[in-house]
Design a binder for these strands. Structure first.
Length: 300
DNA sequence: GCGTCCAGGTCTACC
DNA sequence: GGTAGACCTGGACGC
């Protein structure tokens, strides 16, 4: 069955699917020849389903292999809207970038909606797996989690593990199977806190806390430092942090500093003019070339 | 084949 | 509050 969901003005399926590395981590998979994003959607307590998602500048089309009931369909629609940020209001961000000629392409191409997982828990676990290692290792860790602990679809894919399933295995599993190294106790502790209800990470989506206070709360999770907290804040819709890591620092050096390393203060100064949107303007600037203007259907 | 470096960092002890 | 050193893994690189 296929479900079509209308996108907001200025929506761009390709820019969202390829907005950052998540498209490459299971249970996401992007075929960028056909521009099809595959995603396993959890329908707990029922079996998860593989969704293939295509889209354009106006909508996304979600296909699933089996016929779904009302409740399951609603869950698929909710997750798709959430992952593609279809309900995010980008008006003020686009107004802000339009004042700067070299950033105008962002509004014209509909960039800035960052792909995210259906749950904050998944985004947080994945963020922990990106720290202090190569992307290849991140990919390996996430694939091991999904392969070993995810519920299986009819076609043999795995969903992202629930906090309960991650809490049910011991630290040795994270060291020896996931190859998470020193991150093993962090993953175990996070899963236990979420599964037991002592930490509600999903509440961060709607939190009334000012961003600095929410940042402090997120950093209360073992293994989450400045980069990880700011990365997660972007995924819950707060964009004032730059989430500086070695990749973006190198990218900024290449693009704007003649290949020389720039101080973090200098990077921050370059995007300060965007205020609460500075982290998003920065990220879009760093990833502009991930998609060409032609493919975007953009005018820039 | 082996050693070293470092990648989409964070924690802790110490000053 | 600032900083050095330790922490896991695995691919890239030089020799």
């Amino acid at each position: 069955m296929e479900i079509t969901i209308s996108g907001p003005d200025n929506f761009n399926f390709k820019r969202t699917a390829l907005s950052h590395g998540w498209y490459d981590l299971p249970p996401f998979h992007l075929d960028n020849e056909t521009w099809t994003l595959t995603r396993v959607i959890d329908l707990h307590p029922n079996r998860p389903v593989t969704a293939t998602i295509r889209g354009d500048r106006t909508s996304i089309r979600v296909s699933v292999a089996r016929k779904l009931g009302k409740r399951a369909s609603a869950k698929v629609i909710r997750d798709a809207r959430h992952m593609f940020r279809l309900d995010d209001d980008m008006t003020s961000f686009y107004e802000s970038v339009r004042h700067h000629p070299e950033f105008r392409w962002i509004a014209e191409s509909g960039a800035g909606r960052l792909l995210r997982a259906p749950t904050v828990f998944e985004d947080l676990v994945k963020t922990l797996c990106t720290t202090n290692c190569s992307w290849a290792l991140t990919s390996k860790m996430v694939a091991a989690l999904v392969g070993a602990l995810g519920a299986k679809t009819e076609d043999g894919r795995g969903s992202f593990p629930t906090p309960e399933s991650m809490a049910s295995v011991d630290e040795t599993f994270y060291r020896e199977e996931v190859r998470a190294g020193y991150r093993a106790p962090y993953l175990k502790e996070l899963a236990e806190r979420v599964a037991s209800g002592t930490l509600d990470v999903e509440s961060w989506l709607e939190s009334d806390l000012p961003t600095p206070a929410l940042n402090r709360e997120i950093r209360g999770v073992k293994g989450v430092g400045q980069y990880s907290a700011e990365n997660l804040l972007r995924l819950v819709g707060r964009y004032d942090g730059l989430a500086l890591d070695s990749w973006v620092r190198a990218e900024f050096a290449k693009k704007h500093n003649g290949g020389r390393k720039a101080s973090d203060k200098k990077i921050a100064r370059s995007y300060k003019r965007f205020g609460e949107w500075s982290g998003l303007a920065f990220w879009c600037d760093m990833t502009r070339n991930w998609i060409s203007g032609d493919e975007d259907g953009g005018k820039w």
